[in-house]
Amino acid sequence: MTDSAPEVMDGAREMVLALADDELCIGQNLAWWIAVGPFLEEDLALTSISQDELGHARALYGLLGDDVDALAYARQPHEYRSAHLTELPCRDWGETLVRHFLYDTAETVRWAALADSSWEALGAVARRALAEERSHLRHATGLLSRLLRTEAGRSQLLPLFDQFTPMACELFELPPGCAADDLVAAGIMARPLSDQRAEWQAAVDEAVASAGYQPQWPADSAIPASASGRAGQRSAHFAALHAEMVEVLSIDPTAVW
């Protein structure tokens, strides 16, 4: 454990909760592709990534308390801190791919900024997760670059960047009461979030530049602070997602896997 001041650690725990909730929501959503992926390898890839993300959520919740299931499932909706992008359901494979690309590119930047954290246990989880992220990112960028070489791919995927990039900026925001400057000063996070977001935007720009496309980046998150997932406001999709996650538990609270 780091020896940072208690109020800094409270902020760090809020940040970890937000990261864990992102992983939980996107991991659960990706599991929708089980058995219905567009081709067998893709079915296995998306559901393996789903498992990985849920594993990352478990590791992060484990930094906050012993009862990981209670943290993951038994909170009230306003107590979750997930970014709205992660709460979107998977139905269309193109949407899933673009979101997966934006999310895993962001995650790679976020984990790297935590890999040498003065909160040693968080640093260990970040290094562990970063090693797994490489395959996620290779999967997303490999498919994206191939599809963007085709006219059909460009016409279907590029408009989705306009749709998702503003929302995805929320991935680089922290819950209120979580002072990013203090986290950097305490060595819990290596770089300011604005730096991390800039690196992420540059990586996204580069990935779509070959298709002659430039995403429009808002100066601030498209989601106003009062409606932000980080502040406890859930998107319209969260209720159904949460109901699905706790379906078995709500029938039998003593059920074990």
Partner: peptide, 8 residues
Amino acid sequence: RSDFGPTP
């Protein structure tokens, strides 16, 4: 062929 097989 693929990073993702029958188990993670």
